[in-house]
Nucleic acid binder design. Structure first.
Length: 565
RNA sequence: UGGGGUGUCGCCAAGCGGUAAGGCAACGGACUCUGACUCCGUCAUCCAAGGUUCGAAUCCUUGCACCCCAGCCA
């Protein structure tokens, strides 16, 4: 086997996709000598896994082709945006491992240029101030099948428009009373071209420009100009903006901008068993259906992070799913597989018993204990070993014992032998039950010659189970997370409200779990594989030095439980 | 019934006229002190129907299905 131990080595090869092909061609035929992309979030919410796809695409393109990628806040709507989101977004991008260097921009920094360009458009007779109300404007817009009608204000003179627009800026009009519209074509089959509004009055403070402005530009007008100002070569966005591209191009064609970026659209990420819309995510938080934006079940980057996902696993995931234009629906299992793949290689192993069953080893000296050497990673000796204490009473997983073993079960059962990992081979001799018939203790004999776990006579022991010494165990709370929803497409077509699909078992809190003592030194940066159980990490919010709380990031694949179904 | 898109294995996705990559899943097997990992093997004729061509997933025609658009949101 070749060395695949490092995260770098396990990163998948860059796959071809249509955007990379476009960039490659543009570079080859000299259309560009270098490329500039951008990730342009609106600071009005937390980033989720879908944004990660865009971040990886844009920053990845820049990295691979020796260009640069800008981080630009598309902050043109002060009624929805806030500085708190900016900080989170910046941190998330950095956490994923990307660096915008000094290329940090704000659409709001271009407000004056946007305004000047708007004046230019008015002077060219390509924009006019409309005094229709929103309702009236909607009524004239037409429908998908019928053309719209021109506004009675469409023919105002350039002078009047100039005057009106400057007074809009000066704050002389109320919100909603006037807007600036482009004069394109009310009969266009593309509704985006039916004289789109490019400025509206909003008498609110902007988190960056304060009260300097009371008119704010709209996306279609601001975005393309921002791209042009920054010298973006490839403006990558999602499919729903495909219809807007003619408008993007129209605006840039009318203005003396430094360049004309190419807008390219790709399919946004859809993930099964979760929701991705900002609205639903916000509702989950506001209605306290989850424990905040960073609830470990949320598809947000802060949630995934708290859950224990590594940045590398997310980047790998984004590479794995590819980029295309067909509506895709990625199965959650692929995301889960991405963490396993990454954590399998980097997570040290440890033993923890989540649902303890007391096991007493008859014949093992009372009050005595010994230590066994355990590998921190079975396939990577470089990760070293640790000592695991053993004593007469240990805890094993309740699931690892069956009084009447099911077919195919090869763990502990009356009269059967099993190996306590790294310790001894034991045999179940009897079972102790309480007055309710509940098994409270298992009593076993042990093969003193099997110290360390290997049979002296070379006999094959099929089952190996994990355990923790009762005398040395560290108690902890462990939270088992599962998919937030129990249906693949919550709230989708022909589905009831997504809230009713929330998986009641998406979180299970276990207290009194028994961990091997080395885990007492766990830190937030560490992630562990609890052998035979899954990958776990400390909860960044609730874990305290004397009262540790672990989150289950992902289970291990389990062909036994699959076989049972 | 307008406009813009998409349709290649269960889920993604390469392919750009020369005889269907890869990943995940699934299935079979090997290995195993984690029923994990790893390893080996199996697994499509490309939405449909016509046409062009020596040759088509790739070109043309006609259908069909699905997605997006009527915010002074992005």
């Amino acid at each position: 086997m070749t060395d695949t131990k490092t995260a770098e080595a396990s990163a998948p090869e860059k796959a071809a996709n249509f955007i990379r092909n476009i960039v490659t061609d543009d570079l080859k035929n000299g259309k560009h000598t270098g490329i500039v992309t951008r990730f342009p979030p609106e600071p009005n919410g937390y980033l989720h896994i879908g944004h990660a796809k865009s971040i990886c695409l844009n920053f990845g393109l820049a990295l691979d082709f020796g260009g640069r990628c800008h981080l630009r806040f598309d902050d043109t709507n002060p009624t929805k945006e806030d500085i708190e989101y900016e900080d989170s977004i910046k941190e998330n991008v950095k956490w994923l491992g990307f660096d915008w260097g000094r290329h940090m921009y704000y659409a709001s920094n271009y407000f004056e240029q946007f305004y000047n360009y708007a004046v230019l458009l008015i002077e060219k007779g390509l924009a006019y101030v409309d005094s229709l109300s929103a309702d009236e404007m909607r009524a004239l817009r037409g429908t998908l099948n019928e053309p719209g009608k021109e506004s009675p204000y469409r023919s105002r003179s350039v002078e009047e428009n100039l005057d009106l627009f400057s007074r809009m800026r000066a704050g002389e009009f109320e919100e909603g009373s006037n807007v600036l519209r482009l004069k394109i074509d009310m009969a266009s089959p593309n509704i985006n071209l039916r004289d789109p509004v490019i400025y509206r009055i909003r008498k609110v403070e902007h988190h960056r420009t304060g009260d300097a402005w009371c008119i704010y530009p709209m996306y279609d007008y601001a975005h393309c100009i921002s791209d042009a100002i920054e010298g973006i070569t490839h403006s990558v966005c999602t499919l729903e903006f495909e219809d807007h591209r003619p408008l993007y191009d129209w605006v840039l064609d009318q203005l003396p901008v430094p360049c004309h970026p190419q807008q390219i659209e790709f399919a946004r990420l859809n993930l099964s068993y979760t929701v991705m819309s900002k609205r639903k995510l916000l509702e989950l938080v506001q209605e306290k259906l989850v424990d905040g934006w960073d609830d470990p079940r949320m598809p947000t980057l802060v949630g995934l992070r708290r859950r224990g996902f590594t940045p590398q696993s997310i980047v790998n995931f984004c590479e794995t799913i590819g980029v295309g234009k067909s509506d895709s629906f990625i199965d959650m299992s692929i995301l889960e597989e991405s963490v396993r793949e990454d954590l399998n290689v980097r997570a040290p192993r440890a033993m923890s018993v989540l649902r303890p069953l007391k096991l007493v080893i008859e014949g093992y000296p009372e009050g005595e204990s010994e230590e066994f050497e355990a590998a921190n990673h079975p396939n990577d000796p470089e990760m070293g070993t640790r000592k695991v204490p053993f004593s007469k009473t240990v805890y094993i997983e309740r699931d690892d014992f069956q009084e009447e073993p099911a077919k195919g079960f090869f763990r502990l059962a009356p009269g059967r032998e099993v190996r306590l990992r790294y310790a001894y081979i034991i045999r179940c001799e009897s079972v102790v039950k309480d007055e309710n018939g509940e098994i409270v203790e298992v009593r076993c004999s042990y093969d003193a010659g099997s110290r360390g776990g290997s049979a002296p006579d070379g006999r094959k022991i099929k089952g190996t189970i994990h355990w923790v010494s009762a005398d040395h165990a560290v108690d902890a709370e462990v939270r088992l997370y599962d998919r937030l929803f129990s249906t693949p497409n919550p709230g989708g077509k022909n589905e009831p409200d997504y809230r009713s699909s929330i998986n009641p078992k998406s979180i299970e809190v276990l207290s009194g779990c028994k961990l091997e003592p080395s885990l007492a030194g766990a830190t937030l940066e560490n992630r562990y594989q609890f052998e035979r159980l899954g990958y776990f990490c400390l909860d960044s919010k609730d874990s305290k030095p004397g009262a540790m709380v672990f989150n289950r990031t992902a289970t291990l694949r389990d062909s036994w439980s699959e076989q049972k179904k």
